[in-house]
Amino acid sequence: MTDGADKGVPVNVMSGRNHSEDEPQKRHVEQNHSQANDMINWVLKPYVLESYRQLAESLKTQQRIMGFMRREISAFIADQQAALERSLASIGEIRTSAQELRGLTQAVEEIVKAIESVPRIQMPSVQVPKGVLDAITLSSRFHELMLGSIAGLSSSYYPAEEKPVPSKASDHPLIKRLKEVAPGPKTWSDYEKLCQDILSFCLVPPLLEPLCEESTEGGLHRRDAIYHIPHDASGFWEYVKRAYNALAVIVEAKNYTGKLPKDQVVITSKYLGSKKLGNFGIIICRDGLDDSGKKEQLDRWLHHDEMIVCLTDGDLEEMVGLKLAGHDPEHVIDRKIRELRSAL
């Protein structure tokens, strides 16, 4: 026989072909593979390098954002701790707030960890991680809750021993008009308008100009005046805003000849509520509340968190006197709040 086996040439048993015949084809395949790889590298390499560059920039941006948030949250925690320490020095009732702060601090630390585990920012635009946005929202909400909890524990804004002396106000035109208006239904609208003028003289600003004779939805009830509390209010009105969840002060003037009964307090309470303009209202009347009215006033606060302050003609005159003397007329309202909460 004269085949490859006789000549000592290796034979592929399965195909019946010898290896020498396969070598050119093998080299040709390898050459095609090499050319294909070179082509892929030549086409894709710039895109790969650009992708790596954008990824590196995005990671640096994310690190800067996380570093900024950590600094902001740390500063925020330090500010809240300092504010709490100052509050604890003057308000014994909020000692437990320190434990609440530590718990919230741990929650903020968990948020920081969550920020660090947020997936990489998508390329090529910068997408702020949801965890960062949640941290911003939580820090703002935490600030609101802390102010509200501290304010709600205090029975008043001004110290009880702080008693500014008002100037004589009996000769002031507003007070002269007040004394000229007789009690009773015939002068009801005159009394309402005059009470609004006195409150505006004493409280605007910082309160905004009143919206007068506002109807509730459906027209079933009419509020004499609404004094909105500015968003950036400070001092006494920030305390009212935080402690009583109040966006505005609801005012009702009632020109009764005697003391106000329970049903008049109930009517005013219908304008209050956490889903309305808040839980703070003022009733102005000639001679205060009778026993049933005082009981209803206490019940509205105790069971519904509604603070309804009752001002008399004498209180209005005192407020005008404080205004003339350069003091805060809000001292009178604050004293009424303290008296009501101390009666429980």
Rank of each mutant, 00 (worst) to 15 (best):
V112F: 03
L311N: 00
L289V: 05
F76W: 02
W188I: 01
R95C: 07
V132R: 07
M69L: 13
R286H: 09
G288E: 08
A107S: 11
E72Y: 05
L340S: 01
D22V: 00
Q99W: 14
K26R: 08
V13D: 08
D263G: 09
I121N: 04
S58R: 07
C212F: 02
L104K: 09
H19S: 06
H303K: 14
I229C: 03
D6F: 07
V108P: 03
S154T: 11
A107W: 08
G131Q: 06
C195N: 03
K168D: 15
S125I: 10
V165D: 10
L49Q: 14
R177G: 06
R86V: 14
N37P: 00
V11P: 02
L194P: 02
R102T: 15
K168L: 15
I308G: 00
L289N: 01
I337H: 04
L203P: 01
E161D: 13
T257I: 10
S269H: 01
V249C: 12
C285G: 04
R120T: 14
G4S: 12
V309Q: 01
S170C: 13
K60Y: 04
K295T: 11
K60W: 03
W42R: 15
Y239M: 04
R86T: 15
A343F: 11
H331T: 06
I229Y: 02
A82L: 05
L260S: 10
V249Y: 01
N41H: 11
D79P: 01
I229R: 01
S140W: 12
P329I: 02
I267V: 13
E339D: 15
G218W: 12
S140I: 13
P210G: 04
I282K: 00
E85K: 06
V29L: 04
R102S: 13
M319P: 02
P261R: 04
R71L: 13
V48S: 10
G184M: 10
G314Y: 10
N245L: 05
K295H: 04
P164Y: 13
V204E: 11
I65T: 07
S274K: 10
K295I: 14
I94A: 11
T268A: 05
C202Y: 03
M146C: 08
T105S: 08
S170W: 09
Q31Y: 02
S274F: 05
L340C: 03
V266G: 11
Q54R: 12
Q62F: 00
Q196Y: 05
L322H: 03
G16L: 04
S292I: 04
Q196C: 06
V309S: 02
I150T: 02
K276Y: 13
Q122V: 10
P183I: 04
E317M: 08
S292Y: 03
A135R: 00
H303A: 12
V181C: 13
K113C: 13
I91M: 12
L207P: 04
G8N: 10
S200F: 07
E238T: 05
Y271K: 03
H231R: 15
D190L: 07
S167L: 07
D287S: 14
K26V: 09
R300L: 15
L247D: 14
G281E: 00
V266P: 04
F142M: 15
T61C: 08
E192A: 03
A253N: 01
A36I: 08
P261D: 11
Y52T: 15
L178E: 05
D287N: 13
I91W: 05
A5G: 11
